[in-house]
């Protein structure tokens, strides 16, 4: 039988608030995020460990990680 799919976190990024400062990208321990144009986006959700460091250091109230 196939393994049940791993439950992935949900990362919410507000494009309106994000200023693409790259702090969350540079301090994410598992390289989940990247800057595309004027906003931060998720590039590898599977790698997210839900550590919340991106949220703790985002100066703009722009990123949230739900279990």
């Amino acid at each position: 039988m196939a393994e049940p799919a791993k439950k992935l976190p949900r990362i919410e990024i507000s494009e309106r608030r994000c200023k693409a400062c790259s702090i969350c990208v540079d301090f994410c321990p598992t390289n989940v995020l990247e800057i595309r144009g004027t906003t931060c986006v998720v590039k590898d959700l599977e790698a997210c460990t839900r550590c919340q460091l991106c949220d703790l250091r985002c100066p703009d109230f722009a990123i949230r990680v739900f279990d």
Partner: peptide
């Protein structure tokens, strides 16, 4: 009032959080 006026990467928002 958001987004706030602070520049990209300004630490002030982190302090507020």
């Amino acid at each position: 009032k958001l987004p706030h006026i602070w520049c990209p990467g300004c630490g002030h928002g982190i302090v507020l959080k």
